Amino acid sequence: MKAARNAVTVRAAVDGFLASVDRRHKPATRRSYGRTLEHVASQLGTDRRLRKVTGEEIAEVLRALCVGTAPSTWNQRRAAISSFLAWCARNGYPAPVLPAGAGRQPERREETPIVSRPAIERLLTHGVIPLREKTLWRMLYETTARATEVLALNIEDLELDARRARVPAADGGIEHIYWATGTAQLLPGLIRGRTRGPVFLSERRPGLARRPPSADICPHTGRARLGYDRARVLLDRYTRTEATPGWDLRQLRHSAAAHLAEANVNPQAIMAKGRWRNPRAVMRYVRPRVADLDAVTRRLDMAPRPRA
């Protein structure tokens, strides 16, 4: 048994790990792990014995893969590699260890720019926007859901009459995202003629060399699920001007939260709507008005009222 484990190849180890990444992980996480580890395996040599691979070699591949990227991208790809190496160690494979110089990089949290409600409405009602993009962007705004969650939706997850869809929860359960009239009017046209498979599809069928998993293929059209990078590029293209940069997908979610806060919606309700776990993610949008503070102060007034 030990001899067999010492003889395992990089290819076999990566395949074993990816097969173990089950439904507890979000689809976007599974795809991210797969892309990173497939690249690492190809650079190391898929037929090499894993025991002959050093941690420094893996670190060099990681550095080359992350040239010019943000610290968050480094950390995400490093996390995929670390998870793989930890899985190898738990299963008795001769796993190398990443050197200290390949540790996590500090991330600087930048505030997501808020887009005004009129600007979002102008975009969503513009006549030249294709139905797919119009539906995706409106759903992101009305649900305040994460873009990865919305792009991972299948038609089977939709509950059109209830104006909601099922999404995986962090604890492995099921949560719901809710949309409003605009999305409800657009969705039937987007999925017309389809009863299963991804809600949002790419423009064309994938080639054999880059064929995604069957779960990401529409059984009716053969087209693949729309990816995050493509969706990001399209939003940037339609919103960029000579004077201003294009929007990011996250801005629709965060702008919706800010608009709810401006409408004096309870912060707990905003947290529930966007399914935020950390109150700080919502409180940055809450700006109490002077009138609100005055009303709260009066509730604490215990002094006797003057007699008439």
Rank of each mutant, 00 (worst) to 15 (best):
A59V: 11
A70I: 06
Q43M: 12
T69I: 08
G34D: 01
W74R: 13
G55C: 05
R77G: 00
I81F: 02
G68T: 11
G45N: 09
S42N: 10
V14G: 07
A64R: 15
L44Q: 07
A59M: 06
P27K: 04
G68S: 08
V67R: 15
G68A: 10
S32H: 05
V53N: 05
R35E: 09
S20N: 12
V21S: 08
A70M: 07
D22Y: 08
G45Y: 06
Y33A: 05
K26F: 07
I58D: 10
H39D: 00
H39M: 08
R35F: 10
L37E: 00
K52L: 11
A41H: 07
A28Q: 08
G45M: 06
V21N: 05
R31C: 02
I81V: 15
E38G: 12
G45H: 07
V61R: 01
P71L: 03
I58M: 15
L18S: 06
R63D: 12
V14N: 03
T36A: 04
S82N: 13
A19E: 14
R78T: 09
R24N: 15
P27R: 02
A80W: 01
G16L: 09
T69G: 07
R63G: 12
F17R: 02
N75H: 08
D22H: 14
G68N: 11
E57P: 08
V21A: 15
R51S: 14
E60S: 13
E57D: 12
C66F: 05
D47A: 14
S82G: 13
R63Y: 13
R49G: 11
S32Y: 04
A80R: 03
V61G: 10
T29F: 06
E38W: 00
A70P: 04
A19C: 10
K26Q: 14
T36S: 04
L37T: 00
A19N: 14
L65V: 01
T73H: 03
S20L: 05
E56R: 09
R51H: 12
A19Y: 06
R31H: 07
V21R: 05
R24T: 15
A80N: 01
R23I: 13
R31Y: 02
S32L: 08
R23Y: 07
A79K: 05
S82Y: 02
P27V: 11
C66E: 07
G16M: 11
S32P: 03
K52R: 14
L37S: 00
R51V: 13
E38F: 06
A28E: 09
T46P: 01
R24C: 11
F17W: 13
T54K: 09
L18C: 08
I58G: 12
R63T: 09
E60L: 15
A79M: 03
H39S: 06
T54R: 09
V14P: 04
E57K: 06
T73R: 03
R51Y: 04
A19R: 14
G68R: 10
T54S: 15
Q76Y: 02
T36L: 01
R23T: 14
S20C: 09
D22F: 09
A79N: 05
H25R: 08
H25S: 14
S72F: 04
I81G: 03
L62M: 15
N75E: 04
R63N: 12
L65N: 11
Q43T: 10
F17Y: 15
R48M: 04
